[in-house]
Design a protein around this nucleic acid. Structure first.
Lengths: 209, 209, 209, 209
DNA sequence: AATGAATGAGGCTTCATTCAT
DNA sequence: AATGAATGAAGCCTCATTCAT
C-alpha cells in the first residue's frame, strides 16, 4: 500500500483534487441529510445546507444544480443503501429461524434509523416526485418479498408482496418510535419484533396449508 | 324589493353575529384542510386558503392570527375527532369478538382517511410542533389503550399502552396505502386487518397466561 | 366637468382606491421605461424599477407578475401609441403635399423619441420575444403602407409595403441621432427629411409610370 | 512518427509561444462573437465562451481581464474591419459610377452581415460604453465621408459628413432585414440600394449647383 | 368588522471573478 | 503559465403578515 508514502507528503499537498471534491460532496450530503430531516424538504434552505457544510452557496450549486437534484441524490443514496441491506439479509435468510428473521428485520430497520427520517422528509413531504417515491417503494418491497420467498416455502408471490408491504410499514414504526423515551423505544421495538414474528409464523402456517 | 325591510332590521340585528363567524371559521378550516392536504404545510398559501373559502385575507387573519395557528386549530380538531371516534368505539367493545374488534379498528382508520392526509401534512412536514404532536399521540394512544383494556381481560396497563402504540402505527398503514391501486389497497387492508386480529388474539392468550 | 367637485373632497379622501392603483401602475411603467431605456432589458433590475417608482418590490409584482410581463406591457403600450399616431397621420394624408408628408413622418418619429429608445431596448436586446417583435413590426409597416397607398396613387401594394419597411428604418435614424449634439441632430434630421422626400417623389414618379 | 523529433525540440522551443497565444486569443474571440451574437451581452456567459473555445476559464481571464474587456476587444476588431473595408472601397471609388457606388456600399454592408449582429449586441444592449461607441461611429462616418468626397466633386465636408451618417444608418437596414424571409430580404436590399443611388445622385446634382 | 393593497424579508439560483494548485 | 474549483454578490420572485380605508 502506498498509504505510508502518501502520509509523508500529506502536509505538503493537502489533498489530491478529486479527493477534495469527494469530501465536499460528502459534507454537503451529510449537512443536507441533517437539514432535510430536521425541517422537511420545503422548509430546508440551500443556504443553511451550505452553511452547515461550510460550503459557499455557489460551490453547493456546482455539485447539485438544484435543491431538487440534491434531494434526489440523497434519496438515491438511501435507496441503494436499503437495497444493499436487503440483499445482504436475503443471503442469510436460509440460516435463520422465523424468530431470527424477525430479529434481523428489526435490526435492519434500526440500522437505517438516522436515514429513515430523511427519507420520510423527502418522500412524504413533497409533490412531484411520485415517480421516484413509487420506484423506491417498489424496490424495497421487492427486496423484502424476495426474503419472504426464501424464508417461507410455498408462499404465493402475491402474498409475499402484500406481506412485504405490510412488514415494511410495520418496521417503519421503529423509526417513528425515535421520538419516544429510550425506555419506551425499547418496549416498542420489542413489541414490533414480536408482532413481526407472529406475522411470519402465521404466514408459514398458511403456506404449508 | 326587500331592501327596505332589510334595512330596517339591519342595524338592529346584523344577522346572528356569532353564527356568521362560526360559518366563516368552518369555511376557512375546510378550505385549509383541502389546501394543506394537497400541498403540504409549506407549499400551502394563506392566500389560496382565503380564496377557496371566499374569505378576504384580512378576515382570515382575524380568526387565525398566523398560518401556524390555523394549522394547530386543524390539528386540534382532528385530535378531537379521533378521540371521539375512539370513545365511541370503546363503548361498543364489549359486544365485539376479537375479530370484530380488528374490523372495527380498521373501519375506524378508514373513516379517518381523508383527514389523515391532512394530519400527515401538518405533523410530518413541520418542525417546531413537537409538543402538539406528542400530546396528540398520547391522547390517541390512551384512547386505544382504553379499548384494549376493555377488550382483553387482565392485560397489563403498560402492555396495553405499548400495544396501542403499535396498533396505531399499523393502522396508519391503511391510510398510507391510499397511493396504491384500489385492488392493492383492498389487499393491503385485508392483510392489515388479519395482522391486527393476530395481534389481539396473541395478546389475549398472553393475558390469560 | 366634475373636476371642481372632486377637488373639494380631495384632501379628505386621498384617492378612490382604483385611482391609486392606476397611479401606481403608471408610476411603475414610467420608471420601467426609464430603466429599460438606460440599461436594456437584461441589465435593468426589477428592484431598481421598484425603487425609482417608490414601489415595494412586492407591489410591483402584484401588478406585473414578471419582468417579462412588464416589458410586454410597455411594448404593447408603445405599439398602440405608434398605431394611433399612424392612423391619425393617415387621415391627414390627402391634404398633404409630398413635402408635407415627409415632414409629417419626421415629426411623427420625433414625437416618439423618448419611447423609441425603450422599444429598441425591449425589442433588439432580447431573445424569445420574436413573436411580439414581428407582430409589432408588421403592424407599424402596415400603418405606413396604408399612408403610402393614400399618398401615392397607383402604387403597388407590394411596393408600398417594402417602401414602408425602408421608410420606417430610415426614420429610426432620427431616434438614433439622439446621441449627437443638438446641432448635429438638427442637421441629420433635415438630411433624413430630405431623403424621405426624395424617396416619396421617386416612388410617385414610378407609380405614374 | 515525429514524436521523437518533437521531444528533442520541446524543451528548447516549447512551440512558438506567441503563436500559441495568438491562436488562443483568436479562438476565444471567435467563440465570443458567437455567444454574444446569439445571446446578447448580458445573457452571454464567460463560462460558455471559455467552453466553446476549449479554453479554461482561468486562461480566458488571463487574456481578457473582464467580460467588458472582451467585448471591447471584439468591438475594436470590428471597427478595424469596417475601417479597412471602407479604405479599400475608397480606393476604388474613382472607377465607379454613382450606381456602381450604391451597389458597392450595399455589398460592403452585406459582407459585414455576420459581424453586424455582434456589434448590435455589444453596442445597443449596454450602458457605459458610450465612449467606444462614439469613437466607432465617428470613424465609420469619417470613412464613408472620405468616400463621398472622392465620389462627389465639390461636396462640402459638412454635407459629406451628415450624408455619411445617414447613409450608414440606411445601410444598417440591410443587416436588420436579416430577420425577414429571403424573398423579402432581397426586395428590401434592392429598395435600399435604389434609395442610396437616389441619395448619391441628388447630392451630386446639389454639389454641382 | 371587513377588505385587499402594500410591504419586505428571504428563498432559489446564476455567474463574473479569484486563487490555490 | 494553465487549470478549474471556489466564492459570494446580486437577481428574480413568493408569500406571511400588516394596515389604511
Amino acid at each position: 500500500m502506498n498509504t505510508t508514502a502518501r502520509i509523508s507528503t500529506f502536509t505538503a499537498i493537502p489533498e489530491p483534487k478529486r479527493e477534495r471534491g469527494r469530501q465536499r460532496v460528502a459534507a454537503i450530503m451529510d449537512a443536507a441529510v441533517e437539514v432535510f430531516s430536521e425541517k422537511g424538504y420545503d422548509a430546508a434552505t440551500m443556504t443553511e445546507i451550505a452553511a452547515r457544510s461550510s460550503t459557499a452557496i455557489g460551490s453547493l450549486y456546482r455539485f447539485f444544480p438544484s435543491k431538487e437534484a440534491l434531494a434526489q441524490a440523497l434519496l438515491r443514496r438511501y435507496a441503494q443503501h436499503v437495497s444493499a441491506s436487503l440483499s445482504e439479509l436475503a443471503e442469510q435468510v436460509e440460516r435463520l429461524s422465523m424468530d431470527g428473521l424477525a430479529g434481523a428485520l428489526v435490526d435492519f430497520m434500526q440500522a437505517l434509523q438516522s436515514q429513515r427520517r430523511l427519507a420520510v422528509a423527502l418522500i412524504d413531504a413533497r409533490a412531484g416526485n411520485d415517480d421516484l417515491r413509487k420506484r423506491f417503494r417498489t424496490e424495497a418491497r421487492a427486496g423484502v418479498a424476495r426474503i419472504l420467498q426464501r424464508a417461507i416455502d410455498g408462499i404465493a408471490p402475491a402474498k409475499a408482496n402484500a406481506m412485504a408491504a405490510v412488514l415494511l410499514h410495520l418496521l417503519k414504526g421503529i423509526a417513528v418510535a425515535a421520538d419516544e423515551t429510550p425506555a419506551m423505544q425499547a418496549v416498542l421495538t420489542g413489541e414490533i419484533r414480536e408482532l413481526v414474528r407472529l406475522y411470519l409464523v402465521a404466514a408459514r402456517r398458511e403456506a404449508r396449508g
